[in-house]
Design a protein around this nucleic acid. Structure first.
Length: 419
DNA sequence: TCTGGGGTCCTAGGACCC
DNA sequence: TCTGGGGTCCTAGGACCC
């Protein structure tokens, strides 16, 4: 097998730049929902030492001093740009796995290792020209080595955005130059554990005996080590699998105390969650509602709770899901707390077409036609045009989004204008 | 003052079955 | 003191990913 990993560079920041060339060459930050944390940085912002995930208030001074361009996250834009990139990639191979919003694995088996780098350069140039998004490409005999090559392609400018790892000597060098915590699949905990055992580089790790790896890091770790050695254990998953769970949750801009506000927030989350299920053709067998106070505010009384309601029969119907979520919030809401976050989780998902009929549950009168009309109206006139009443009980819970760019590619009212 | 959101898989232990 | 053997299913928690 020959795997290529295509990775969009600084994806969200790059998306903002496509429509705003004035920020090319300037440091750019994209913030999490609620404008709380930094979740994407242009290279210039990384060079200023701004770390992934830091709270914005900790870097305010740097932002002001360097006139950094700051954006709230705009998922409508990023999701659409991602689709465009993936569409271009699909022209280069019939066999690919969309791994995340900004990454895809391509199967390039059938190429010789000699001309494969040239092909990758073609891919890179085409994506750049057609979408405006810069990408790096790593190539190797396993997914993990392709990932590793991708890091090199990104870090070493001389590579021209493409790196391949087939030659055993090259592999050895690359593994030796990679810190364990930079390996795909090694997180903070295992990184610390390995260093405590004197294992510092990917090369060190690849040299550990199997039983030791198995006992310290389970079967997942064992697979990873074999992949580092060049033995492919992770297949390309070309067919996206059905989701097993689906969640919608938000932090609130200000603490929420009133029951109506919380009900309205949770009803909105449930409404959105049921929409997502319908888009995916799934139904849920249960919904979990949770809420909690702000854990950072140790000066305030803390409370967190969750409850799960069975949906019988399994459903993706808006009113049914919202109804259950309202029962849930009724169960766990307590007065006297300032809530920071709430959400719903849809669980026990299955295909809507093969729904199990219930023996005991009463007949429902949930109209799928009504939901089809609901979705059609929102598709045509914009999401939120028609809503369930329960979502409008209170309105004091919206998240902060002060710097959102226009939805240039998905909303007629927000098209880019040329003056 | 201000701290995101959405996923997956594995493991260990408990409850239960015959 | 000593207390079978072999399963399945569920759950909570851990670890990781982007």
């Amino acid at each position: 097998m020959i795997f290529a990993l295509v990775d969009c560079n600084n994806f969200y920041a790059s998306c903002e730049r496509v429509f705003n060339p004035g920020i090319v060459g300037r440091p750019v930050l994209v913030l999490s929902n609620n404008d709380g944390c930094v979740i994407a940085r242009s290279q210039e912002a990384k060079d200023l030492g701004i770390k992934m995930g830091v709270p914005v208030f900790e870097v305010r001074a740097i932002i002001a001093r360097h006139k950094i361009a700051v954006y709230s996250s705009n998922y409508a834009l990023y999701g659409d740009m991602s689709n465009r990139v993936m569409k271009v990639l699909f022209r280069f191979t019939p066999s690919m796995e969309v791994y995340s919003i900004d990454e895809a694995f391509l199967d390039l088996s059938g190429f010789t290792t000699r001309d494969i780098s040239q092909y990758a350069r073609d891919i890179r140039r085409t994506v750049g020209r057609w979408t405006g998004i810069p990408v790096s490409i790593g190539i190797g005999p396993t997914k993990t080595l392709a990932k590793l090559a991708g890091n090199a392609a990104k870090k070493i400018p001389a590579m021209g955005g493409v790196a391949a790892l087939f030659d055993p000597d090259h592999q050895r060098d690359a593994l030796g130059a990679t810190e364990v915590e930079d390996i795909w699949g090694i997180g903070r905990r295992h990184g610390r554990m390995l260093k405590a055992h004197g294992i510092h580089t990917a090369l060190d790790l690849a040299g550990q005996p199997d039983p030791w790896v198995r006992s310290k890091m389970g079967v997942v770790g064992l697979r990873l080590v074999h992949e580092l050695r060049g033995e492919s254990c992770l297949d390309l998953e070309t067919q996206p699998k059905d989701k097993k769970s689906c969640r919608v949750s938000r932090s609130f801009a200000k603490g929420v105390t009133r029951r109506e506000d919380l009900q309205s927030a949770v009803a909105s989350f449930a409404e959105r969650a049921s929409e997502k299920l319908r888009e995916a053709g799934l139904v849920a067998g249960a919904v979990t509602v949770f809420l909690h106070t702000n854990g950072f505010r140790t000066d305030q009384p803390q409370y967190r709770n969750a409850t799960t309601l069975v949906l019988d029969p399994a459903t993706n119907h808006g009113s049914a899901v919202i109804g259950a979520a309202m029962d849930g919030i009724e169960k766990i809401y307590r007065t006297g707390f300032s809530y920071k976050k709430a959400g719903v989780m849809m669980e026990g998902l299955s295909r809507a077409s093969g729904t199990q009929l219930s023996l005991l549950a009463p007949k429902t009168h949930q109209s799928t036609d009504a939901m089809k009309a609901f979705d059609a109206i929102n598709r045509r006139f914009g999401s939120g045009t028609i809503r369930h009443g329960a979502t409008m009980l209170g309105n004091n819970w919206r998240m902060a989004q002060q710097h959102r760019s226009p939805r240039y590619t998905t909303c007629w009212e927000e098209l880019a204008t040329v003056r």
